[in-house]
């Protein structure tokens, strides 16, 4: 089975937030609700400084802490390796929000459940790619099968030695970053 993941090239990101809007559009989210957003980091002082845009979203961790702590078993990993929330089981205890080190889960007050990025599983199963990937004007995100060493994403990760955010937290994320 495939293990889908994304490699993100932060050196190409211009911080236009198109990925965020495309995601909100595809998932019918309110303006305040977001499954992905862009963190910014500045280093150094004028005239020698850098400004980095780092898009973040659910990392679909192989050892997902949210899945481990969910009391109702609402969170599971699909055969494609996507960490998925069964909406009808979630009680809204928010334990998974506390457990997630990346803080990419949000509470949907309307339905009273926790939601997050689901890697546009609806598009992916039809052979497409997630909305944030296809909409990006700079092709910052590379989507594909991490289990296949010949896929574009695997090659990208190998060539640029892309790393997940905070690999030391030992959750084995499936979103990789090329930082410099």
């Amino acid at each position: 089975m495939p293990r889908y993941g994304i490699a993100i090239d932060t050196t190409k990101c211009i911080g236009c937030h198109a990925c965020q809007v495309a995601c909100q559009n595809h998932n019918n989210l309110e303006p305040k609700e977001q499954f992905n957003w862009i963190l910014e980091r500045e280093q150094g002082k004028h005239p020698s400084f850098s400004h980095e845009f780092i898009p973040v979203q659910c990392n679909h961790c192989e050892k997902a802490p949210c899945q481990r702590v969910c009391p109702t078993g609402a969170i599971y990993t699909t055969p494609e390796g996507i960490v998925y929330i069964r909406k009808e089981r979630c009680v809204g205890c928010k334990y998974c929000i506390e457990a997630c080190p990346y803080k990419v889960r949000i509470l949907d007050h309307g339905d009273g459940i926790v939601t997050k990025c689901w890697l546009c599983i609806d598009l992916v199963r039809k052979g497409g790619e997630p909305a944030c990937v296809t909409t990006c004007p700079n092709q910052v995100r590379v989507f594909g099968d991490l289990a296949d060493p010949k896929s574009r994403v695997s090659k990208f990760i190998a060539r640029h030695r892309a790393q997940p955010l905070r690999p030391d937290l030992n959750t084995v994320p499936r979103i990789f970053y090329k930082r410099s």
């Binding site: 009391p71 089981r89 009680v91 809204g92 205890c93 928010k94 007050h109 459940i113």
Partner: peptide, 15 residues
């Protein structure tokens, strides 16, 4: 403190 589990109490059996 629950959300959906409060107004749909049968969900609490999943706990």
């Amino acid at each position: 403190d629950l959300e959906a589990g409060l107004w749909q109490p049968w969900r609490q059996f999943y706990l």
